[in-house]
Design a protein around this nucleic acid. Structure first.
Lengths: 329, 329
DNA sequence: CTGAAAGCGCTTACAG
DNA sequence: CTGAAAGCGCTTACAG
């Protein structure tokens, strides 16, 4: 039975009702750090329940300097890749009893700095940064404030902040080899507009694996832009026979562009995508992908935040064979 | 130039350096509530900049009882519909200078209660609840604590908490009429496993608009489950000629199931979906949808949180004609 | 095992 | 216009 909502119940109210001190109530609520006699504990617990006491985490945070909150700076939750990552991060944090503050930076470095600044002002215990292309080392602000930070999906390789990302190099090699096994000597690559971030590194791996024979294509990261590119190429019969898309969004744009142009997938153009978001399985035709191990990545990043001495190993992105490559399944 | 990271810079440090009191520094930093002489203001600003002062929002929150943080309880960010909603909510909150605490409840009422409990302990200034099917009135806990709450996308219609959702009734009528204009007298409906939440209300509207002629189908909300249903129906030639899917996820599953079964869309089966997530445009073939006005919904919910006297009007979900219905575009 | 009290970093009446 | 001081709700040495 809780009291009227006029004034929130405080620890002092509980102490008064239980006929003890606030120290003892705190020890009972937090199960430490000092022992409490069983009888006293019972009285405190009963009083807390009767009053409907809910600990004020803000007060606790001010005193103990631990908020129990971690900030996630995300590129854009509109993109299911990042949406999924956010979900797994939240799940990982919940496993450690932490709450997640989340903000979208778009693809804007200034907005990213501003978010980090606000999260630090909110006294987050840690910071996870999942940026897209943003160049500069935003995590440095966290380090300066003594707040642990980890980059997820992408980050400056040179810095002192760990970067958790999938083993994309190996994934690209597997994708090229798989399309070659389908008889395609020349394997094209659909990259982003620039060579920044993970997509740039994927492009480099493709260059090494595909050699001189492959065509490099570029489009924006949206489905619409990849769609438009394929339609444009189809008009002059210039769509390559085999293509690796750097991201699922682009791959899905390729599928819709090819469909609109009357070009069948995989017979007219075989497609493999490098993201492998959970639902890429249900495109038409279903996409062959190298599945980004988002859950492992999120878990590793979260663990690293709480134990910076832990190992940083790029999780494997396995080839998931479906229909867009030419396999019958 | 900031000091060494050993101890964070406090307002008292700034006051000491500027040769004034903490009260004055507070007035300068917050631009009120009392006036400060221009010369003093300059000294304070200079001192703050030199020391790299960052206000501790936890301390401010404890004293002023305003955290500047709003909690978003989401069903599941893995679903792009909710991911997009979360992005627009965050954007709306940022416009009001608020930070967003986000948690996923899955489709579990117990996890939803737990999240609300934790957000209230974190002293959020408001709560936005975007649940899926969860029956009970979780927002009641917020009301009891004197914290404003708004349901988004779905919520108990009977309660005292406002529910912001699109005008789904009208959207369904438009979808039925559009398929009829394509010559389909009988329009089937693919609902969820139960008649809970918005999908249930959409089903009722369909019932009213389609009359006795339409077939009611059911599947889980995942792409995979809708995909499997269509394959199963196709095996006995039982796929309806025209179908409205309650959600994009299910519609995409229908497309992939039909593709796998060799059933062409729209000629074998015409499809209209009722979600209209931003990227439903790039399926193959592109989906005709009634576009959920996610951005308006998010904005209205956020505005309602800060001004509970504001109007609650269901935003219109316009029919967006693409190819899956049979239109040539 | 328990209590009285200081202090986390702010905001804000209260005096001047 | 400015300063000295109380107090937000906790946690945690310090005594007993």
């Amino acid at each position: 039975m809780s009291t009227s909502a006029s004034r929130p119940v405080t620890l002092a109210d509980v102490a008064r009702r239980a006929g003890t001190s606030t120290a003892v109530v705190s020890y009972v609520i937090n199960d430490g750090p000092r022992p409490v006699a069983a009888a006293t504990r019972e009285r405190v617990l009963a009083a807390a329940a009767e009053l409907g006491y809910r600990p004020n985490r803000i007060a606790r945070a001010l005193r103990s300097r631990v908020t129990g909150v971690v900030g996630l700076v995300l590129a854009d939750a509109l993109n299911p890749y990042f949406g999924a990552l956010a979900r797994y991060v939240e799940q990982g944090l919940a496993g450690h009893g932490r709450l997640m503050l989340m903000g979208n930076a778009g693809y804007c470095a200034e907005r990213q700095r501003q978010l980090v600044e606000r999260f630090l002002a909110a006294q987050v215990d840690g910071l996870l940064i999942t940026s897209a292309d943003a160049g500069d080392d935003t995590a440095a602000m966290a380090r300066a404030a003594g707040v642990p930070a980890v980059y997820l999906h992408n980050g400056p390789a040179s810095g002192q902040t760990p970067v958790v990302a999938a083993d994309n190099e190996h994934a690209v090699e597997e994708a090229v080899a798989h399309l070659r096994a389908h008889g395609h000597h020349d394997v094209a690559f659909l990259a982003g507009p620039h060579d920044l971030g993970p997509v740039g590194r994927r492009r480099e791996s493709w260059q090494a694996a595909a050699g001189a024979g492959g065509t490099l294509l570029r489009s924006g990261y949206s489905r619409a832009e990849a769609d438009a590119l394929i339609r444009r190429l189809a008009a002059t019969d210039a769509v390559p026979r085999a293509l690796i898309a750097a991201t699922d969004e682009q791959a899905i744009g390729v599928l819709s562009g090819a469909s609109a142009a009357g070009l069948p997938v995989p017979d007219g153009v075989a497609v493999v995508s490098l993201d492998g978001t959970p639902d890429s399985a249900h495109t038409a035709p279903s996409l062959t992908v190298t599945g980004q191990p988002l859950e492992s990545m999120a878990r590793q990043a979260v663990d690293l935040l709480f134990d910076p001495t832990g190992p940083v190993t790029a999780p494997h992105a396995p080839l998931i064979v479906r229909r867009s490559c030419g396999c019958e399944t």
